[in-house]
């Protein structure tokens, strides 16, 4: 008792001293604290709406608590399977195509030693990153329309009936999204790998040359193992985000004809939640999405820790 009393005494004394000394610090951090309370912590409590028929016009008082109703719908609605399979396919395409190419680009960039040339290449390959998604989608619509140069190409090789836009054809949709993601992200995503390669100790290469390694062998035995931790770190983040396919591009480009191949969890949440006002159901979908993502992230992290002894946490 006395010990805890003494501790409490000490605690309140420390508190007083800290307050006197650092009063201004607490004032300075207040805006950030309030900001994150409102825009990060409060929405976390908003996840409770997953158990309600929340209606934005009626507010919480006018909304019914419905227990697990939305989760029952999610697990029985066959459309959820379409959504999940589209989401996972988009992500796998992203991991198989959009993820590795920046690594190859970075390897090429670090092999080109001419300074002005490298600078020009960097400026060119970063450019698409700075174009907004809305504008990119406008460009995609232009190129893939029946009179656009990509649309015209597919017409000339007989893959597209003349007069049709590629965007109303389900067959093209995933290809369009993935290839344009690659175009927009490849350069910018290569930055981190360029930095990783630049950080490799040059004596490793000198030793490899002494051992008679050619450039290809130097790459596989020095460069690649050295940047593997960076690659794994980025891959873990990708795997954690398998269900978080960005909705912006798909939302701006899909239409009811392509929903079957285009609709993903995030577009569904936006369409039904914001436009259809089904806030309870879509919060439930978002909640499940976050839980699965968290599990995937942790799983990938553990796997990486086991396999190459590197992990994020």
């Amino acid at each position: 008792m006395t010990a805890s009393k003494a501790f409490r005494g000490k605690f309140s004394k420390r508190l007083k001293k800290d307050w006197k000394r650092n009063k201004l610090l607490y004032v300075m951090i207040l805006p950030a604290f309030v900001y994150f309370m409102i825009f990060s912590i409060l929405p976390l409590f908003g996840l409770l709406f997953a158990f309600s028929d929340y209606n934005i016009a009626l507010g919480l008082a006018g909304s019914d608590w419905v227990g697990l109703k939305h989760f029952q719908k999610i697990f029985t609605d066959p459309y959820m399977l379409t959504l999940i399979s589209n989401t996972v396919i988009f992500s796998l395409l992203d991991i198989v195509i959009v993820f590795p190419l920046p690594i190859i680009l970075a390897s090429l960039m670090s092999a080109a030693k001419n300074k002005p040339f490298s600078k020009a290449v960097k400026t060119a390959v970063y450019m698409p990153y700075f174009i907004s998604i809305v504008v990119v989608c406008g460009m995609i619509r232009n190129f893939t329309s029946s009179t656009g140069f990509i649309g015209a190409f597919f017409q000339s090789i007989g893959q597209l009936e003349s007069g049709y836009d590629m965007l109303i054809k389900p067959d093209f949709f995933k290809g369009i999204i993935t290839s344009t993601n690659l175009w927009q992200q490849m350069g910018f995503n290569s930055i981190i790998f360029v930095a990783a390669i630049a950080g490799i100790d040059s004596t490793l290469y000198e030793a490899a040359v002494v051992d008679g390694a050619n450039r290809w062998k130097q790459y596989w035995h020095v460069t690649f193992p050295s940047i593997l931790p960076t690659i794994m770190m980025m891959l873990i983040i990708k795997i954690g985000g398998i269900l978080n396919v960005g909705f912006e591009k798909i939302y701006l480009l899909y239409n009811p004809l392509t929903y079957g191949v285009a609709d993903v969890l995030s577009t569904y949440i936006y369409r039904l939640g914001v436009e259809g006002n089904q806030l309870g159901l879509t919060t439930a979908v978002g909640l499940l999405n976050s839980i699965i993502s968290f599990v995937l992230l942790m799983g990938a992290n553990t796997l990486s820790a086991r396999l190459i002894k590197k992990s994020m946490f």
Partner: peptide
């Protein structure tokens, strides 16, 4: 810890929209 929580956990689109 408070700020790190906001980094790792998010309410998602709809709850933020409601707020």
């Amino acid at each position: 810890i408070f700020f790190l929580i906001t980094l790792f956990f998010s309410g998602g689109l709809i709850p933020t929209y409601i707020v």
